[in-house]
Amino acid sequence: MSDALSLLQQRHSAPSRQLGEPAPDAVGLRALLEAAIRVPDHGKLVPFRLIELRGHAKLKFGAQLAERAIRRDPDLPESKREKERLRYTFAPLVMVVVARLQADSGIPDIEQKLCAGNVAYNILLGAYALGFGAQWLTGWAAYDPEVAALLGLAKNECVIGFVHIGTPIADIPDRDRPALDDLLSEWKA
Rank of each mutant, 00 (worst) to 15 (best):
R72N: 15
P74E: 00
D75R: 13
P77Q: 11
E78Y: 10
E78N: 14
S79P: 12
S79C: 12
R81I: 04
R81C: 06
K83C: 04
E84Q: 09
E84K: 04
R85I: 03
R85K: 10
R85Y: 04
L86W: 04
R87K: 14
Y88T: 02
F90D: 13
F90Y: 15
F90N: 10
A91C: 13
P92G: 10
L93R: 01
V94Y: 11
M95N: 00
M95V: 06
V96M: 02
V96R: 01
V96Y: 05
V97N: 09
V97C: 11
V98K: 00
R100P: 01
L101T: 11
A103T: 09
S105F: 15
S105M: 14
G106N: 03
I107W: 06
I107R: 12
D109P: 11
D109W: 10
D109V: 07
Q112A: 10
Q112M: 07
Q112H: 06
Q112C: 11
K113C: 14
L114T: 15
N118V: 06
N118A: 15
A120Q: 12
L124M: 14
L124S: 15
L125E: 13
A127W: 01
Y128E: 13
Y128N: 09
G131W: 00
G131A: 02
G133H: 07
G133L: 08
Q135P: 12
Q135E: 15
W136E: 01
L137F: 03
L137K: 07
W140L: 08
W140T: 04
W140Y: 05
A142N: 02
A142S: 01
Y143Q: 10
P145L: 08
P145E: 14
E146C: 08
V147K: 08
A149C: 12
L150G: 07
L153Y: 10
L153T: 02
K155S: 14
K155C: 10
N156V: 09
N156P: 09
E157V: 05
C158H: 13
V159L: 03
V159I: 15
I160Q: 01
G161Y: 01
G161F: 00
G161S: 00
F162A: 03
F162M: 02
